[in-house]
């Protein structure tokens, strides 16, 4: 029987919602699990994950664990995994998780499987499922080493609901510093200030393509504001500078699965589809009737987006009364 350590990802002193998908992974694996809240402010954040049925909530709260520099986090995650006798370490497949997980695996001599979308216990084996080739195929795989590290996709594993109870909270020690840590320094985080929900957590996403040009925000913001939506973008729109890079949805950007996804002026390259085709309802607005996006859209509208989107805002306002 495995013993799983779920690494909670913190942001602004809170546990990110993606962590709840990692808890779902642990439940699917059917094994006892603990949660490690690690980072500056972890002590305060830990209380939010004590109600999920974890055996323990481990906390490493240290002022040095600030800024998502994986060289600072990996030694302590690996040490906590070893000390607690955990054989599976789970992180979220966020940019932080993907940065840190392989380092943890290398420290533990563990095999690493990224972007897990499901897990099954078969006897004493864990069988993982993960997308490959931009989601054009799903692979089943096993990790052959005794210790295993995985990252899990928030878009494929539903967020776990609290199950009640109160897991005991326990402090774990900060590991000794790595040589590598002395050679990396945090310079700054340039983040566009936004009141919008995170792409990974939004119920609705309004995404735009290159066709929007300089009017990207001018056209999409009213629709996003009305629906409380996150804004996403195609690679072409980001490359052209119409939208910031962190809004990119796709194989190599964010992978999302909201209830409702608007693809506005996005042709639908396979790399983009890889990042959004798990969405529940997809709406495409494009003036090219042959655009591949229409093959995955539940509702397609062939129209000039500069007319259709403002009209959509007006009609939605009417419909919402």
């Amino acid at each position: 029987m495995s013993k799983i350590l779920v690494v909670a990802e913190l942001q602004d002193g809170k546990v990110r919602k993606a962590t709840h998908s990692a808890i779902t992974f642990a439940r699917q694996a059917g094994a006892p699990f603990s949660i490690l809240a690690i980072g500056a402010g972890a002590q305060g954040a830990a209380a939010s994950v004590t109600g999920f049925g974890a055996e323990k909530v481990l906390v490493c709260d240290d002022a040095s664990l600030v800024g998502p520099i994986c060289e600072r986090f990996a030694p302590t995650i690996a040490q906590a995994a070893k000390a607690g006798g955990f054989d599976v370490v789970v992180v979220t497949a966020s940019s932080f998780g993907k940065d840190v997980a392989p380092r943890v695996a290398a420290k533990l001599g563990a095999g690493y499987a990224p972007d897990i979308s499901g897990v099954k216990a078969e006897g004493d084996k864990l069988v993982f499922r993960r997308p490959v080739f931009a989601g054009n195929a799903y692979a089943t795989c096993e990790i052959t080493t005794a210790l295993k590290v995985v990252s899990v996709r928030q878009s494929e594993l539903a967020a776990a609901e609290p199950s009640g109870g109160a897991s005991p909270v326990e402090s774990v020690a900060l590991a000794a510093k790595d040589a590598a840590e002395g050679r990396i320094e945090f310079v700054g985080l340039e983040a566009a200030k936004s009141e919008r929900p995170d792409l990974g957590e939004a119920r609705v996403i309004v995404a735009g393509g290159r066709a929007l040009k300089e009017q990207f925000a001018g056209v999409l913001d009213p629709l996003a504001n009305l629906l409380g939506a996150a804004v996403g973008a195609s690679r072409a729109a980001c490359d052209a500078g119409y939208a910031p890079a962190e809004l990119q949805v796709g194989q190599t950007g964010r992978v999302v699965a909201p209830q409702l996804y608007f693809a506005i002026g996005i042709s639908g390259a396979i790399q983009h589809l890889a990042g959004m085709k798990g969405s529940k309802t997809i709406v495409a607005v494009n003036k090219d009737a042959d655009a591949p996006i229409f093959q995955v859209a539940d509702y397609g509208l062939v129209a000039d987006l500069f007319q259709a989107v403002p009209e959509l805002v007006t009609e939605l306002k009417k419909a919402q009364g």
């Binding site: 089943t140 990790i143 052959t144």
Partner: peptide, 19 residues
């Protein structure tokens, strides 16, 4: 350290409509 044991195609989305 990793062994791939099988592959399958993703579930197809059912065809939508044009409005």
């Amino acid at each position: 350290k990793i062994k791939y044991t099988g592959f399958e195609l993703p579930p197809a989305r059912k065809a939508g409509i044009k409005v």
